[in-house]
Amino acid sequence: MKISQDRVIGWVLLAVAFSALSSLALITTFIFKEGVPIILKQGVGNFLFSNDWYPGEGKFGILAMIVGSLFVTLGAMFIGAIFGFGCAIVLTQFCPRRLVSIIKPAIELLAGIPSVVYGSIGVVILVPFIRDYLGGPGLSVLAASIVLGIMVLPTVTSISVDALQAVPRAYREGSIALGATQWQTTWMVVLKAARSGLVAAFILGMGRAVGETMAVIMVAGNTLEIPLGLTSPVRTLTSNIALEMGYASGAHRQALFATGVVLFVIIMVLNTIALAVSHSKAAGGRR
């Protein structure tokens, strides 16, 4: 009697546990159902590699947005990685405990600030600064990269901290005992041992940067041109969707969903790489 009750509960819980997976399936189905037909109609090559985005004329090419997302993401990761890894190293290797309990919550808080707040501060501070001192309209790849870099920093830091903390103490102690300095130990022993975790942190940070929307709309300028430099304005895949979704109908709406499909595929590839990398780490640990 008791056993069967437990079994029933087990089945119910199993059913509930599949809700995350079924949500994922549902999301995939709906986004693809709305978006894929127009990609096929336009031709995959035409959709991905043409720079003509003229919804009024029925021309949908998202090359500029793909390149734009790529540029902005790379820029963001440059900043996010330097600061994120730097903070993670400080927190795990160099920081007295008392300071950790200040810096760590501060970085976590950075993750809690709404993206619209980041965007607005970018618009009122960063954009005029870039316009006045570096030229161009101010709304630019650079502005978007800096804002996004700050936004992905907490993701990169927290995953890196986990990875660095997982390195056995003995590695560190052994290296120090052999006369290496703290930095030599960090650089040659700890970072090497935590490498796969750090790669995962970088890739997941990248996923966040590719997917961020509201802050980018505000600071990127949203032009349809392929950006030529750091001060050029740029439109990303996400801002293309959010900018025009409110209005779109018919083929235009489908094309925005198709933009979503491309974004979705990019994110899934990044996720899978990150998962694979962290799994290989787990396997390596067991060996």
Binding site: G221, N222, T223, L224
Partner: peptide, 16 residues
């Protein structure tokens, strides 16, 4: 022109 900046509201145009 593709190079024109795109803003999503009257207010954003005004600010810029």
């Amino acid at each position: 022109s593709r190079g024109a900046l795109v803003q999503e509201s009257n207010g954003a145009v005004k600010e810029l």
